[in-house]
Simulated assay, not measured.
Amino acid sequence: MGNQRFCVTNSIELYRRCLQYVPLQKLILQNSLIAEAARIVIDDNEYYVQASAMKCLASAARIESIWREVLLVHPHLYKQLLCVICHNPEGMVRMEAINVLTELYVHQRLPKSFIKCLYSKMTISAIDDLHWEVQLSALNFWKQVIQSLLSDRGMIDGKFPAMTFSKEKRKIITLNNAEITRQLTCIMDSLSSIGCLDVLVECLNEEYNTTVMEQAYAISKDIMSILDYYKYEIPSITDFSSSTMPDQLQNFELNIASDPMGFDSDMMSFDNSDIVDRNVIIDKITSTSDAELIGEMFDNYISIKNDDCIEDSPTQSKRKTITPYDFISNFKQTDYLSKLKNKENWNLSNLDTLLDEIFNLEDENNLLHDECAYL
C-alpha cells in the first residue's frame, strides 16, 4: 500500500513538471490528469499525497485552458480549498492550499463573489494558525493582494508614472501630487477594509515566531517606503457631514428614526400568494417519484455541505479593524527592528540556558547514580 501511495505521489509530481511544456499540456488536458489531481486533493486521506496534488494545482492555475477543465469536473473546488484551510489537521496541506488560492488570485481565476470570503479566511490563517509555515503562506497571499491593489491604481515597479489609465474614471489621468495622494488613500482604505492592516499589525506583534514577525515587518516596510516616498499623510479623523452624505444613507437614517424597530410597514403585510406557492410545492412533491426526491435531496446536501464548511466558527473573535492612520502611527512609533533583534537574542540565550540545565541535570543524575552504586 505504501509503494502504491509513493507511485501516486511521483505521478503527480511528474504531471506538475510536464505542465512547463506546451506540447505536454495538450496531452495532460486530453487525459484530464489535473482534474484527477483535484480529486486527490478532495478525497485522499494521506497528507503528503494531498500536498503533492496541491502543488500540481498551483502550477495548473497559471494555465487558463487546463484550469477551466478542472472547474468543469470540480465546480465546488474553491469552497473545498477553503474547507481544507479551515479544517484540515495537517499544516503542510493547509499551507499548500493557501498557495493554490494565492496563484488563483494572482492570475485572476477567482470569482468576485468568492473574494470577500477568501479575505476573511486568509486573515484567520495569518493570525491564528498554529503552524508558522501556514502563517507565512497567508502573509505571502496578502503581499500579492497589496501588489494587485497598487497595480490597479496605476503603480509600476513601486512608482506612479506621469500618466495612467484609470479603471475608476475609464480614461487617462495625470498623476500629479493631489491625484497620487487620492490613489494612495484609496489603497490604504481598501487594505483596512479587507483586513490586511489587521494582519500586519497582529503579525508584527507576534510573540513566539520571529520568522512571521520578520515577514510582516518586510511587507509593512515596503508599504511605508511608498508612503514616505510620496510624502503621504493621512488625517486622524475624517469629517462626514450630513450635506456630503449619500442620499440613500440619509434616507436610511430617516427610516430608522420613523420606525425604531427597523421594520417597514410593507414588510408586515400578508401576501396571499404564499398560500398558492405552498399548494404548488405540495403538488410537485406528491407528483414526484421517490428516486427523484432522493436525488434532489442529495444534490442539496452536497451544496449545503460545501457552503457550511467555509462558514466562520462561532467562537471566532471579533477584531477591531485597524485604520490606515492607526497602522501608520503604530509603525512609526514602534521600533520593530529592535524588537526583532531582542527576540532573536532572547531565543538564543534561552536555548543556551536550556542546554546548560540539561547538561547540569545529566551530571547530577550521573553523580547520584555513582553514589548509589557505592552504597
Rank of each mutant, 00 (worst) to 15 (best):
F270K: 12
D271L: 10
D264Q: 07
Q333P: 02
Q333M: 14
I294R: 05
I328F: 00
N345W: 09
F252C: 05
K339D: 07
N342E: 15
T334C: 08
W346M: 12
D312E: 04
P260C: 04
S349L: 10
D356S: 09
R278K: 11
D326L: 04
L249V: 13
Q316K: 03
C309R: 00
S313D: 15
I328N: 00
M297L: 15
K343M: 14
D283K: 11
S258C: 06
D312C: 02
N330D: 11
C309F: 00
Q333W: 05
D266Q: 07
L348P: 00
T288R: 05
N272V: 10
F270P: 00
G262F: 03
I275F: 10
F298A: 13
S303Q: 12
F359M: 10
G262Q: 08
D312I: 02
I294W: 03
K332T: 06
E344D: 13
K284H: 14
N306L: 00
Y325S: 01
F298T: 13
L340T: 02
D335H: 08
I304Y: 06
D271I: 09
E311H: 05
M261D: 13
K341G: 04
I282R: 13
N279E: 15
Y336V: 02
D312Y: 03
D264M: 02
S287Y: 02
N330R: 05
S349G: 01
D290F: 08
N347M: 15
F263R: 03
D308F: 04
M297W: 07
K318T: 12
D271F: 09
F359C: 06
T321G: 09
N347D: 15
M261Y: 04
W346Q: 14
N272W: 07
D299H: 06
S338W: 08
K318E: 09
F270L: 15
G295H: 11
G295R: 09
I322C: 01
P260K: 06
N272F: 06
S303Y: 09
T323K: 02
P260S: 10
E253M: 14
D247R: 09
P260T: 03
F359I: 13
L337S: 14
F359W: 08
L355D: 13
D326S: 12
I256D: 02
N347Q: 15
G262A: 11
D352W: 02
D247Y: 05
T315L: 10
E296S: 09
D356C: 03
A257F: 11
M297N: 12
L249R: 08
D335W: 02
F263G: 01
K341W: 10
K341E: 15
L351G: 13
K284F: 14
S303I: 04
L337F: 13
S265V: 09
T353C: 07
S265Q: 06
I281Y: 10
N251Y: 03
V276W: 04
F359G: 01
S265R: 06
S289G: 14
S303C: 07
N300W: 04
P324T: 05
A257K: 15
S313G: 02
K339M: 15
D299Y: 06
E357A: 09
N279D: 15
T334V: 12
W346V: 02
E296W: 08
K318G: 08
T288C: 10
N347Y: 07
M261I: 04
